[in-house]
Design a protein around this nucleic acid. Structure first.
Length: 203
DNA sequence: CACTGGATCGACT
DNA sequence: GTCGATCCAGTGG
């Protein structure tokens, strides 16, 4: 597994969203290494996308990192209680990002279990194992990703993404979740996931 | 300053 | 299927 370099992120969020599937997120936190395979993403295309925080050039303190260099983390709080982890795409001044919606837990399951359910992995029910990282808020809780990670450079050593194995999988393309307000954009097929993967949030 | 609503989740019917 | 939790960012005065 090799850390992805800057150039990997220098493409539209629509293309990046698909290419991120099957890649591995690595987070070093409190002397621990947590790893998860990306199994579900959504593209937010910025200027022309009514569902995007940066729609129509909107530029506020929160969304500023999306206007910065590609390959950084955009982490924001939603509904007062959950964090969402995004990968900044495109290039400087083009505010696009990919929301990572679900991971398959790979390494550090014990810590993820404690973070999510305050109990050891061996005590989890089957449904709780699936629920460790099967949603954008859940995966941030499991990994301990907070807004302190907003703006983090994903080509450095704290939080980064690695190339996957050569495995083959089918990509399902469908509509994005939770953006009913976005008029015509709510019907764009800009959500992607690995077919038949158990950790997808809403198959 | 006060207000509004949200790229969610979990508990409940 | 519905709904409440919980709080910040954005907006407008």
């Amino acid at each position: 597994m090799k850390k992805l370099e800057r150039g990997f992120y220098r493409k539209t969020s629509l293309v990046l969203a698909k290419e991120l599937l099957g890649k591995y997120i690595v987070f070093h936190n409190n002397n621990e290494k947590l790893v998860g395979k990306i199994v579900e993403t959504e593209a937010y295309m910025g200027f022309s996308d009514k569902a995007a925080h940066s729609y129509n050039g909107r530029r506020t303190p929160r969304v500023e990192v999306m206007y910065g260099e590609e390959g950084h983390a955009y982490v924001y709080m939603i509904y007062g209680m959950y964090n969402c982890f995004n990968v900044v795409a495109a290039e400087k001044d083009i505010a696009q990002a990919v929301l990572v919606r679900a991971l398959e837990p790979i390494e550090g399951l014990e810590t993820m279990s404690l973070n999510r359910f305050q109990k050891p992995f061996e005590q989890l029910k089957k449904s709780q194992i699936i629920g460790l990282t099967s949603g954008p808020g859940k995966l941030c809780d499991a990994f301990g990703i907070t807004r302190e990670m907003n703006g983090e450079d994903l080509t450095q050593d704290k939080l980064y993404i690695c190339s996957g194995t050569e495995e083959k999988f089918h990509i399902v393309e469908t509509t994005r979740v939770g953006i009913d307000y976005a008029e015509e954009a709510k019907d764009f097929p800009w959500r992607f996931y690995i077919k038949d993967n158990k950790f997808v949030s809403k198959p």
